[in-house]
Design a protein around this nucleic acid. Structure first.
Lengths: 224, 224
DNA sequence: AAAAGTGCACTTGTATACAATTATTTCTGG
DNA sequence: CCAGAAATAATTGTATACAAGTGCACTTTT
């Protein structure tokens, strides 16, 4: 599936990031270069590169000459990310309504069509993947390299939430319906409508998560 | 002034980032590790760490086994950043209106008071620095770690624009006035008003830059 | 026995050495 | 003279070696 043919540093970066987001580390847990290196069967060099990258993402804190410590993301962080998404995805689809290409709209259409098919068949896995593609193209359609970058980086943070959403009865159908509303608004080149649809989409999700409790879903990390 | 006492990798990272943002590199220019290392009088190791961090910021593109190439930021990118700022700073002050501490409001008040003093004295340099502090505290007052991180990272990108704004007659006074409006709205705990004030603030700036031409101000980088 | 100082173990920071990949040049055959 | 392949140079990827800083335990002293 995904090219495992990357450089060591990138692989290590992605693995540790995923583990941090998944809550596999304790807060303030120390990440020792040599330990990680031996665990992964590599030298310290690529590990260091990975840790420096993680620092720039804010997932770890590096104290010079001392060590690297897991920062991780709290339930509050996740809530904040939702607010950020609401603002930025709104901006994104507003732009997309103005400047999406015919190919992009076609692609979105196809994805939704496929998603509706897999929904009927109960293929949750495929629906989730298509959801990812839908967002990917939406981010691209906004036409802003910077915006796309931010939205993509935060998309990863919500893997666990999406997994949870799949387990909520009727939620998948609802999400696909909301996606269709967004797409229709873009097709009509109605930026306001698209933005509102996104806002409603995200608000619904937040409300649902609220009722279950953010802490239970965002897979909070262990205590230090 | 700023601690030059950082690790080599960080210093290199900051220097190259600043140079890229300032447009000192050509688009697609190759950054050779050994060359940079010798120029800075260090080994390749910290240079590599810096380049990997720059890649995560999207300022360079690394092609495995091939090389590192400057991506840089275009005038369009700068425009997009303004849209992003409008959305996120709006969100930030809306939150700040709800949850800013008395100390933060006090600090903002003091900064504005000082800025108005330096404005009368014609101390542009001090006004600019105070503007940075004002935003810093505003970002903090929003109460969102994630939001603060994004806004901070993009603040750097606009150094040149701010330098330009200082040269526009009457603009400094206008900006300080807008900042005061934002602060007053926060003090009244009126999130909507604060958000609108921010929106107007940014829109004014965009309009001004538009009239001068983005390309002339964002110090576009050289051609590859 | 308590406190302070010293030394040792451990971890990170940096430089160098080696391996692997890519680009370039040169040589050969048509 | 040109096309293509082998050799060669240059650059990146990874590992190791060495330097420097930090913390802890132990010793020593009062």
């Amino acid at each position: 599936m995904s090219e495992a043919n990357y450089l060591l540093g990138q692989k290590i970066f992605q693995k540790i990031r995923q583990d941090i987001i998944a809550g596999k580390y304790s807060r303030d847990e120390e990440l020792k270069e040599l330990l990680i290196a031996s665990e992964m069967g590599v030298s310290r060099t690529p590990v260091r590169e990975a840790l420096r990258q993680l620092e720039r993402e804010g997932l770890v804190a590096i104290i010079p000459n001392k060590g690297t410590y897991v920062v991780g993301i709290t339930a509050q962080d996740m809530k904040d990310i939702y607010d950020i998404r609401a603002a930025l995805e709104g901006l994104c689809v507003r732009q997309a309504a103005r400047m999406a290409t015919a190919e992009q709209i076609e692609a979105l259409e196809e994805i939704l069509y496929l998603a509706e098919y897999h929904l009927r068949k109960g293929h949750d896995r495929q629906v989730a993947e298509l959801g990812g593609k839908f967002h990917e193209i939406l981010y691209e359609a906004g036409g802003s390299r910077m915006l796309k970058r931010i939205l993509q980086s935060y998309y990863l943070y919500q893997e666990q939430v999406r997994m949870f959403l799949l387990t909520v009865p009727g939620k998948i159908r609802e999400i696909i319906g909301e996606h269709r509303q967004i797409l229709e608004a873009i097709k009509e080149q109605d930026g306001e409508k698209a933005e509102q649809a996104v806002g409603k989409h995200i608000a619904n999700e937040m409300k649902l998560i609220d009722s279950y409790g953010w802490e239970n879903i965002t897979g909070g990390q262990k205590d230090g």
